[in-house]
Amino acid sequence: MAVQSEPVRVNSPGRSGAQQPPKSRRPAAGPSLLSRIAPYLLLLPAIVATLALLGWPLVKTVLLSFQNLNRRQLVQHTTEWNGFDNYKQLLTSAEFWHTTGRSIAFTAVNVVLIMVGGTLVGLLLNRLGSKMRLFLQIGLVLAWAMPIVAQTTVFTWLFDSRYGVVNWFLNQLGWHSMATYNWYSSQLSTFFVIVLLIVWGSIPFVAFNMYAALTTIPNELYEAARLDGAGSVKIFTKVVFPSLKPFFLGTTFLEVIWVFKCFTQVLAINNGGPERLTETLPVYAYIEGSGNSHYGMGSAIAVLTILMLAVLMAYYFRIILKQEDEL
């Protein structure tokens, strides 16, 4: 959330004059030692927690990815360095590249649907009366607050081939061939269920942020636009979108990261099946690493996944830094 709220504030029209020069806030006298290190002390717990819970495992994962670590090495506590063997094997394997391509396509489809859906719901929130807005907000919060494993279980039941509500409903509508349709029998239909689950679970976040961001656009801008004869589409493309560009950018990148590393839903819906055709990179790493006890190989897949995300993030930070420079 912090990622997009900052640029939104900086960018929102009508606020630029209100910005105070930061210097005036500093005390005139020389600051005491405590007040100088206070910010760092306050940051310390977060930094320690991040290093312990993310940094250290990350370092270990990178180290493991250069080892031949299977059950034998784990049981006997031996370390077998094998250089870039794991990476060589992965980068020359068709399976890895197929899975990568699938992950990218999967991420693209999900993110587009989430952003379009979330934006539309956000705009709706902004236009609704207070009662309906509350109603919709409660619905969104419930979807957002539901634990992922519970969400997945519910979807598994909804799409059950014999007792699922979806098949029953389609059958009632007259589509009788769907009465006992097995949604997990093909790659596309399995992906359909997974994508629906992820999009449904992610829309509330985008919608709430969109709504929050919309409230920063002053009404005068809309009025001015309308006086100039702009329709809804034009208002969105000429007023809303330019004002909220940093919001769209930040949220899109967050969603890219979340969907790309999304693990639970894909694994729990159908274990990456049928025929391993819905495995995305995190599931692939899990099956190779934990499932088949090739911990070194699993780590290498994880590191490559992190590198791919890092490239994406570098692009994002470049845009952000450029914007900061411009301001």
Partner: peptide, 21 residues
């Protein structure tokens, strides 16, 4: 999630290695 798991196993293995010796 995966990498944390692997790392946790790895750390556990190291700690235990010391204990076993």
């Amino acid at each position: 999630m995966k990498r944390q798991l692997i790392a946790a196993v790895g750390v556990a293995a190291m700690v235990v290695g010391v204990a076993a010796c």
